[in-house]
C-alpha cells in the first residue's frame, strides 16, 4: 500500500502555482536588541545620591540579569544555557564543589577556551556559582541586597566586586560567549566602571518596584 498511493495522487496533477504572498514577513527583519551599557557619567543629571547610586546598579543589572550570567547562577542545581535559558543539556548537576558530579565534570566538555567547531563555550574555571549566589528568578533589588551580603556573594567585600565583575576572566567570558550566544551588554570594562561608581557612591539598592 505504501507505494501505490503516490500513483493515485497523479489525479491531482503536478502544476506549480506561484503565489506572491505580499504579507509574508521578511526573514531578516528581526530588530536588534539593545545591547549596550550607559557610562556612569551619563547619570550625572541625577542629583539625589541614593537614587544616583541605585541608578548605577539598575544599569549594571542589565548584565547581572543577562542570560550569560543567570544561566550559571541558577536557582536550582542545574545550569541553564542558550539565549532562551533552557535547561542545560545534557542534564548536569552542580555536585559537591560546583564543578559537576562524578560522572559529569564541567571540565570534561568545557575546555580552557570556546571551541567553535563544537559551539561549546570554555574557560579554565568553568563551574556553577554556589547556591547562595543564585540570581535566577530574583528581582534587581533582591540581587542588589544579595550581592552586598558577604554570606551570599562569595565572601567578597564591596571593593572586591569591582574586580570580580570588571576583571575576572570567567565573568569576562560573558562578553565573548561564542557563536549563537548574544554577549552580555556593553563591555566588561564598562560593567566594571558601573560597579566602581556604584560602590563609591554608597552601593544603594534600587527600590523593589523596579523591574528585574
Amino acid at each position: 500500500m505504501k507505494n501505490r498511493l503516490w500513483i493515485l495522487t497523479g489525479i491531482i496533477g503536478i502544476v506549480l502555482i506561484f503565489i506572491l504572498r505580499a504579507e509574508a514577513k521578511s526573514a531578516s527583519a528581526k530588530p536588534l536588541l539593545e545591547n549596550t551599557l550607559a557610562s556612569p557619567e551619563s547619570f550625572a543629571s541625577i542629583k539625589d545620591p541614593q537614587k544616583l547610586s541605585a541608578a548605577y546598579f539598575t544599569e549594571l543589572s542589565k548584565v547581572l540579569t543577562n542570560q550569560r550570567c543567570v544561566n550559571c547562577h541558577p536557582s536550582g542545581d542545574t545550569p541553564r544555557q542558550g539565549d532562551t535559558r533552557r535547561l542545560h543539556q545534557p542534564l548536569v548537576y552542580r555536585g559537591v564543589d560546583g564543578f559537576g558530579t562524578n560522572s559529569m565534570r564541567c571540565s570534561t566538555c568545557h575546555q580552557s577556551a570556546n571551541f567553535e567547531p563544537g559551539r561549546i563555550p570554555g574557560h579554565p574555571g568553568w563551574h556553577l556559582a554556589p547556591s547562595e549566589m543564585a540570581w535566577e528568578g530574583k528581582t534587581v533589588p533582591e540581587i542588589c541586597e544579595q550581592i552586598k551580603d558577604p554570606q551570599r556573594n562569595g565572601n567578597r567585600t564591596l571593593h572586591d566586586l569591582i574586580d570580580h565583575i570588571g576583571k575576572d576572566t570567567l565573568v569576562g567570558w560573558a562578553w565573548q560567549p561564542g557563536y549563537g550566544r548574544t554577549p552580555a551588554p556593553g563591555t566588561q570594562a564598562q560593567a566594571g566602571a558601573l560597579v566602581e561608581a556604584w560602590v563609591n557612591s554608597g552601593a544603594a539598592c534600587p527600590q523593589q518596584q523596579s523591574s528585574r
Binding site: I12, I17, F18
Partner: peptide, 14 residues
C-alpha cells in the same frame, strides 16, 4: 526578491 513560499498541489486526499 521575496516571493513568499511556493504553493504547490497537495500530495493526496482520500
Amino acid at each position: 526578491k521575496e516571493t513568499g513560499p511556493l504553493t504547490l498541489p497537495n500530495y493526496g486526499a482520500f
